[in-house]
């Protein structure tokens, strides 16, 4: 069993995993960070998106052992230190960028990656970036508006 250690939301963590343990399983089942969701289980829906060394990845399509030594960020790390919502999260609430909320953790993490690469994305660039995040409620319009607002607010 590989023993792994990584930084998750700024905190050092370690654990014993099987070779086949997925990063999303390690986060949810070993660390109890259930904000990262498992939606499709087939790398399509993006509900499981987290950041590994600053890049957004699908945590259901990466082995936990491959993230050994990495810096991982999840939705639990997106709130401000005082527990209030971070800029992107607040924008999703303000613009009604969610209905059932299942896809939202992945949407927020994906948007955060976009906004660190492109501070002022166009509507088209946002829509293209969200290719790997599926939402079955909103029709995406309010998600796009939320990300535009987050960009304007300097997220």
């Amino acid at each position: 069993m590989p023993s792994i250690s990584m930084t998750v939301n700024g905190k050092s963590v370690s654990g014993e995993v099987e070779g086949r343990t997925l990063l999303v399983q390690f986060l949810r089942e070993d660390l109890g960070l259930t904000g990262t969701h498992v939606g499709c289980d087939t790398s399509q829906c993006g509900a499981c998106v987290v950041h590994v060394n600053g890049e957004s990845v699908k945590a259901c399509t990466m082995l936990a052992a491959s993230a050994d030594g990495a810096e991982v960020a999840t939705i639990e790390g997106m709130a401000n230190a005082d527990g209030s919502l971070g800029v992107i999260q607040q924008a999703f609430q303000d613009h009604h960028g969610l209905q059932c909320g299942f896809c939202t953790p992945g949407m927020v993490m994906s948007a955060a990656d976009l906004l660190q690469k492109n501070k002022n994305p166009s509507e088209g660039e946002i829509r293209e970036w969200l290719e790997g995040n599926i939402c079955r409620c909103t029709g995406y319009h309010n998600i796009v508006k939320a990300i535009q607002a987050a960009a304007a607010a300097g997220a």
Binding site: S43, G46, V49, E55, S56, V57, K58, T61, M62, S110, D113, L114, W129, E131, G132, N133
Partner: peptide
């Protein structure tokens, strides 16, 4: 290729 998360890995 794929989507941004697939391209990152």
């Amino acid at each position: 290729i794929g989507d941004p998360q697939v391209r990152n890995r």
